[in-house]
Nucleic acid binder design. Structure first.
Lengths: 129, 129
DNA sequence: TTGCTCCTCACGTCACGTGAGGTGGC
DNA sequence: TTGCTCCTCACGTCACGTGAGGTGGC
């Protein structure tokens, strides 16, 4: 059986493989109402381009920024609102989210640098005595 | 000793009492860099009007919406950005957050209604046989 | 001294991701 | 039949809030 049923729509195993995510996690996201997608007549989930776009935003928020699902819900609703009412386009939005990831990583690097400096200092002291 | 040091600035116990929040939690929020406030010369934390405003937003997000601290960080940064770049004022923003709380509560009420309906159904079935 | 403050360490609870186990349709 | 899908249940890990215990300054 081909795993593509409609043009551009894919089954759960394809999505799981492409984004390196557990199928159960995808089912969890649906149950939590973060993603709504179609089903085949045989009750199999079908992911289209819009759902995959949304999934990418969810993964960026959860994996890269550590936001929980309640936070994802607030942020995605906010995104929708901004789009509707204030003409914030998706590129602007994604660039913002990316910037957050960048800031976060910069923070981690600063922390790593501090840890390294501290361990160098420790070594310096211990070899000194 | 009076617990007010400067006009409009209060110590941690006052804040804890007013918002019904554990002092350790307030210290945690500072450590996580969600709130930055002044200290007295004796190293005691001082909360001013701006910090309390920010704290209210944090509590609304964590308590009412279940957002974790990483999510709060993203959302508050987003708020700052919107203010700076897109002239979204604080009233607009808070009304949005309040709307989210309202939607969430409506969802809970829908769930409660479903549970009640299900238990009525169960009772109906059990008395029937 | 009293009642606050500061700090660190540790525990309990819950959310979230993952896995097992058993079902059914193409 | 094979390899997917569906589902529920349960476990491990981690974040976050809370508490204890001991310190110090007004």
């Amino acid at each position: 059986m081909p795993r593509r049923k409609r043009e551009g729509f894919v089954m759960i195993s394809i999505v799981a493989e492409r984004y390196n995510i557990h199928p159960q996690t995808l089912r969890l996201y649906e149950r939590e109402d973060l993603i709504r997608h179609a089903r085949t007549g045989g009750n199999t989930r079908l992911y289209g381009p819009d759902e995959l776009k949304r999934l990418e935003m969810i993964l960026r928020l959860t994996r890269d920024l550590g936001v929980n699902l309640a936070g994802v819900e607030v942020i995605l609703n906010l995104h929708r609102r901004m789009q509707q009412e204030m003409d914030v386009d998706i590129d602007q939005w994604m660039s913002y989210i990316r910037q957050q990831v960048f800031d976060r990583r910069a923070g981690v690097e600063r922390e790593n640098a501090l840890v390294k400096a501290a361990s160098r200092e420790l070594q310096r002291i211990s070899t000194k005595k």
